[in-house]
């Protein structure tokens, strides 16, 4: 007999909270995945979320969770302070590529090297969304942004930073992946990856990091559908999808 699935809004989302993102923005999809996972792990009462500076800054307006705010790029430090004081709580950061891979990449790397038992979700939309679409460290060569109106030129500003690949090289990293959310299959895979990163913390294995390729249709000047196509055809060729580290698999080998 066919199973009947009834959709329920995750408890970890506020009942009257509404996402305030632009149409086609990736943030809402990922925040919802996180809320679902926190519900599945039954962690709503034991979670402290660390927000960052970017379009997702108002986590407390979406999540039915305790939230600590951080200055631009410093969420991993705030998370470290929280987790060291409350080792039995579940602590994660939610950051953009400007926050985690540009102004705060030093903090990202060191938190990974220390093997902090926290989970970090980085939304990579290859630009500074909140400030109006300037080039960030992850911006693709050739990508048009407000600060690279003729496209990013490698001769002038170098090459995109590949956060997940670098974080994977840190010995304290237990799980590290780059995922996309371009279709429902991808979204399921993204959820599985974030689940793994959460488990790395819950099982005391170390630092978990998931980079999610996401659309910023507003600043890309594309429709949501065009944005998805752009990620599949262009972004994924440069920021390749994959699991770059998983100590649970390596242990078995």
């Amino acid at each position: 007999m066919a199973e009947t699935l009834v959709y329920k809004r995750p408890e970890s989302l506020l009942k009257d909270g509404h996402f305030t993102f632009c149409p086609g923005c990736g943030h809402g999809v990922v925040l919802k995945i996180i809320a679902e996972l926190i519900d599945e792990f039954n962690l709503q009462k034991d979670t402290i979320a660390i927000s960052s500076v970017g379009c997702s800054i108002f986590l407390e307006k979406f999540f039915n969770l305790d939230v600590a705010g951080a200055s631009h790029g410093r969420s991993p430090c705030v998370a470290t302070g929280v987790k060291r004081c409350k080792p039995d709580k579940f602590v994660f950061t939610y950051q953009g590529d400007g926050d985690a891979a540009t102004i705060g990449f030093n903090e990202t790397i060191h938190t990974a090297c220390r093997g902090e038992h926290i989970s970090m979700i980085m939304i990579n939309n290859t630009n500074f969304g909140m400030t109006g679409g300037q080039a960030s460290a992850t911006t693709l060569v050739g990508q048009v942004t407000t600060t690279t109106p003729k496209g990013r030129k490698a001769e002038l500003t170098g090459y995109p930073l590949h956060a997940a690949e670098i974080v994977a090289k840190c010995d304290g990293t237990a799980y590290c992946a780059r995922v996309a959310i371009t279709d429902s299959k991808n979204i399921r895979q993204a959820k599985a990856a974030i689940k793994k990163a959460f488990e790395a913390q819950l099982n005391g294995l170390g630092f978990g990091f998931v980079e999610v390729l996401a659309a910023c249709p507003t600043n890309w000047h594309m429709t949501p559908v065009e944005s998805v196509k752009h990620i599949e055809e262009v972004t994924e060729k440069i920021h390749c999808l994959g699991v770059f580290k998983d100590v649970t698999v390596q242990e078995k080998v």
Partner: peptide, 21 residues
Amino acid sequence: NFITAESELASINMVIGAGTT
């Protein structure tokens, strides 16, 4: 807890994390 942080930016923000708890 003792951490030699990666910078003073990091150390004060770790203090913030602890302080929020």
